[in-house]
Design a protein around this nucleic acid. Structure first.
Lengths: 351, 351
DNA sequence: AGACGCTGTGGGAGCGCTCCCATGAGTGAT
DNA sequence: ATCACTCATGGGAGCGCTCCCACAGCGTCT
């Protein structure tokens, strides 16, 4: 029996047409009212609105999408395994900003993880199907082919964290250079002499900028940069631990460390403890992100706060603009589509 | 000039019809192949697949949704302000499981926050428009009208954490009773005499169950339950701090605390420190969730681990089933649609 | 008075798909 | 050879909307 038919019938929702009949107008007019066109007389508009209210009419999005060729949805694409997504509190906060800003609109948010190969292929299909009006790209490595794919498909995109200084996609970022610099300036001001840094992966532009900030602060203070004090990490806790251990090995006289993420700082702290160094008495420690971990560490961690939520909001704003004036690529210039937001150093007991 | 028309033309994607022509078959046949119907000969199927590959055909979801009355999308609805969503690592991990399981399918995940009033109304509209095939409801309080709305709209729904022992919606939960019990049994085994608990909100069923587990463990050990040792919290850090402070006031002789969440345990720790109590020498501490905070606390926190990721997977499984046999409510019975997963106690230095 | 332009409106023509009915070919039983 | 079925297939009829053309009504300019 028509299980399907029953379902279709029982839950039938009113259509544009029915609203039109009830309001005594044509379909086109109802459509105009629904979409806020100004070319409708006040009387007609009122009549239509009454009919809409009476029937409890809600537009059918599929039909709209089909006819108008838009989806009113954007995707937040995370090109990392889900695991990492949440190891870094960064993403969660960004999501918060994105959600908040999007709540102002009719747009919907799709969350897509594309860590593995299979997910990657699925994502490509998905994008090819133009199932979203725009894409938010988070945490992209320099060599990732995704941005090019998106450009090729002509899908409006905003990237969080430019891939290089000559990023072509609209982007939102915090001032990594200034952030790194402020942390190191603080350590200098605290009288530290041998300041090291545990860096992020070199293929992440933001990580590079933090290192540059580290160098700048030292140079401005008239100090020489000891390259052995710059040890590579990978944004993981274990990586931070290893980097710190190595650092203690190479430069046991180190008396301050700027870790490019709180998570790595947590790892560094373990290594310091294991080596019997006290924080901050023997070694001052500063992190980056001002995450939950920073506040709960013992001692609480000095950390560079990024306005991540605000960054999320800014990304949505940019993306909505991109979608709005989505026009032939040629007519776009090198717009001022690179937003950079200020950081703030949260000083705590670790330094 | 026709920016719109240009766009529509330039990026034109092949349609079913075009695939049919190229393969030399009818539209219906192509549709059958695309949708994996068995009623197609091997030769035809091969021809169609070749044509699909050659044209790079990708089905238009909007058209499909319109014609078939389904969306191939499900929503994860979080009826809390975004803020809380991430304060509890719980959600993040759940999202991970959901994402992983969903990656096996063609379904898409929509993330919807419905904390405020405006978001609530928007959500209602959204659901009324049947823009998703099913809904995952996370962290629902007992009095929330959302589940009823969903039932009324006849939208397949799975709830994480039943609202009461007579939950009618399919649900996935961890064994809160067993979890609470195991934590308290552990504290008893450690020789603690005055064991208190800081609870979650009373209108959260899971929180109730944890209290019940606390009571059960004490009773089974032949101990009397001192009601003054049961202090209400609200799953926040500050709430945990206050509860602990109050506890120290009322029952200074307390020598162990089971907090119904790690976040509250972190708050309790602050209060204990402030009062000069050592962990675990003076007071043993156990939490719930086995979150990042537990591992980074000083000392590391004993905590009840829920298989949250697995719970996310289970929710998706249940929901997909619900969607598959979505039939008149009458024909559904009190199915075995209540999944309960086992917890595990992670013992660390705090106890 | 006629020509012209506006504004508000109605409704046809699709958008690309699924559903389902009709059709014809193939198979085996009578 | 005939009938009854089954199976693969083609294609019409929508799904509910937006876009846009056509047109009526009215004021304005010459």
């Amino acid at each position: 029996m028509a299980g399907h038919g029953t379902r279709g019938r029982s839950g039938r929702r009113p259509t544009l047409e029915e609203v039109a009949v009830l309001a005594g107008v044509g379909r086109g007019t109802v459509s105009r009212v629904i979409n806020g066109s100004p070319r409708v007389s006040d009387a007609t508009r009122a009549a239509v609105e009454a009919a809409v209210a009476e029937l409890g009419y809600v537009p059918n999005t599929a039909a709209r999408a089909l006819a108008a060729n838009r989806t009113d949805a954007i995707a937040l694409v995370v090109p990392e395994p889900e695991t990492r997504f949440f190891a870094e509190p960064y993403f969660s906060e960004m999501l918060r900003g994105v959600g908040a800003e999007l709540a102002e609109t009719e747009m919907q948010l799709l969350l897509i993880f594309a860590g593995g190969d299979r997910e990657r292929r699925r994502l490509a299909q998905y994008l090819a199907a133009h199932r979203v009006d725009g894409v938010l790209l988070v945490s992209v490595h320099a060599a990732d082919p995704l941005p090019d794919l998106l450009a090729q498909l002509d899908i409006p995109t905003v990237i969080s964290g430019p891939r290089s200084e000559r990023e072509t996609l609209p982007s939102v970022d915090s001032d990594n250079h200034g952030g790194g610099r402020s942390a190191v300036e603080h350590l200098i001001a605290r009288g530290r002499r041998r300041i090291a840094t545990i860096t992020g992966p070199f293929d992440v532009y933001g990580a590079q900028r933090r290192i540059d900030g580290y160098r700048a602060a030292l140079r401005d203070a008239g100090r020489e940069v000891d390259e052995a004090l710059i040890v590579p990490g990978d944004f993981t806790e274990e990586g931070g631990r290893r980097a710190m251990a190595r650092l203690l090995d190479l430069r046991p006289e180190v008396d301050a460390v700027f870790a490019a993420s709180d998570v790595m700082a947590a790892g560094a702290r373990q290594a310091l403890r294991a080596a019997g160094r006290r924080i901050p008495e023997d070694v001052a420690l500063a992190g980056y992100d001002d995450s939950v971990i920073a506040r709960h560490m013992d001692p609480p961690l000095t950390s560079v706060r990024q306005p991540i939520e605000e960054m999320g909001r800014a990304m949505i704003d940019l993306l909505l603009e991109e979608i709005a004036d989505h026009r032939p690529a040629a007519s776009r210039g090198l717009d001022r589509r690179q937003v950079v937001l200020r950081t703030e150093l949260m000083v705590r007991a670790s330094s």
